[in-house]
Design a protein around this nucleic acid. Structure first.
Lengths: 130, 130
DNA sequence: ATGACTGCAAAGACTTTGCATCTTT
DNA sequence: AAAGATGCAAAGTCTTTGCAGTCAT
């Protein structure tokens, strides 16, 4: 068979991994997660494919948390919370950034806004209670 | 004299540099800017003092832009615009993130919010017209 | 003397890249 | 055979750190 999910195609596994998790993983986290099913997958392949997916718009980067880039397969704009203690990243699909803020930005900065990212930081539930 | 601004005290020069610019510089940008007045300043000293200022709360990090950390001596929470083309960072003191969003975040994520960062991205005035 | 700050170079952490190999068409 | 994907190791960037020398008190 020649479908899109041949077992030896690691690219699909990497994308699937990102789509199935809510952990907003780093390259190394993806690598670790895939080791069970693909014992010989290399970190370079993970990096190469993450870069590719990013360029294709299949995933987005959340920027770096403690020096490490984190990724999200949910490319629709949404708000995140990052725990200062354990580096967990939590989605907040319920929250919306008022459109007017983008318009104000264009007005005040004389720029053209293409995207926006709102990130709250603090302590996640677990870390707050320990 | 023994004031706080002895010429051989580079720490003050680094902080002053950050306070006097709106460029939200990286360590290397600070280093370059200070070379004129302090020809022998080392990049390590800049990094060391930036780390120190951050810990002391004298400056804040904006996170990384294209893999390079950027700093701001304005520690009051405020919105930024980052140009995708030239990496310029622009302050938007006029814009405010509704308080309610932080409260909603605590509610939905079950977390304790300590800070928030809103960053718009796009093309700055210069890059949009060229 | 003691403690603090710095330059330099080495080390570290994260990411990218060159090359040979293997797979797929 | 040709194009593409991958592993491995080397290289590259950005940042931190160890150590010795300098300055301040």
């Amino acid at each position: 068979m020649e479908g899109t999910t041949k077992q030896f195609k690691k690219r699909n596994a990497i994308l699937a991994c990102l789509q199935q998790t809510h952990a907003h993983p780093s390259a190394e986290m993806v690598h670790d997660m895939l080791r069970a099913s693909h014992p010989d997958i290399s970190l370079a392949t993970v990096y190469r494919n993450l870069t590719r997916f990013k360029q294709q718009g299949l995933i987005q980067s959340l920027g770096t948390v403690n020096g490490v880039e984190r990724f999200d397969a949910n490319t629709s704009p949404h708000v995140h919370f990052v725990c200062n203690c354990c580096d967990a990243v939590i989605d907040l699909p319920q929250i919306e950034v008022p459109q007017s803020l983008g318009q104000d930005t264009e007005k005040y900065a004389g720029c053209r806004v293409q995207g926006c990212q709102l990130t709250f930081t603090g302590l996640c539930g677990k870390c707050a209670n320990s």
